[in-house]
């Protein structure tokens, strides 16, 4: 049996101002891929339901927030905790050529996928070269 243990990355606090309630805000781990149509972001936000996600684009800044409803099971007392529960927040500065109307977002199994298609005119036009 393989006994090697790889430690996963710890949750990093987000670089945002403190909350008044003392609740923690984490920076979601993000994968970003660029395709021919645009850019896709995949953010890890465990515990966040689709209705608790807030995606805004304002002056080129894409802000993503996810709210976690802390679980306090009745009749149970916390004996051990290493999973920090808190909201998620992260912002990205984008280039100008994204259409805010066409931004799509979906949540599946705690992963938020944001698709940002590039604006029409910004899509590279293919120029066919004809042999003379």
């Amino acid at each position: 049996m393989n006994t090697e243990v790889t430690q996963t990355a710890d949750k990093t606090p987000a670089e945002t101002p403190e909350t008044t309630t003392g609740g923690r805000i984490y920076r979601p781990l993000t994968d970003i891929v660029e395709t021919d149509e645009g850019v896709t972001l995949m953010l890890e936000m465990p515990g966040v339901a689709a209705e608790d996600v807030d995606v805004t684009l304002e002056k080129r800044v894409l802000t993503i927030r996810g709210k976690v409803h802390p679980a306090h099971p009745e009749k149970l007392q916390l004996a051990y905790a290493e999973y920090g529960e808190g909201d998620f927040e992260r912002a990205f500065t984008l280039s100008d050529d994204f259409d805010p109307e066409k931004i799509g977002a979906s949540v599946a199994n705690g992963v938020l996928t944001v698709t940002l298609p590039r604006a029409e005119q910004a899509q590279p036009k293919k120029i066919t070269v004809t042999a003379s």
Binding site: L29, T30, D31, I32, E34, T35, V39, T40, M42, E44
Partner: peptide, 16 residues
């Protein structure tokens, strides 16, 4: 690993 279309370029890969 998430399925990405062929020819996609990775900008960031923080998730494990």
């Amino acid at each position: 690993m998430p399925e990405v279309p062929e020819g996609a370029r990775w900008h960031r890969n923080e998730r494990e």
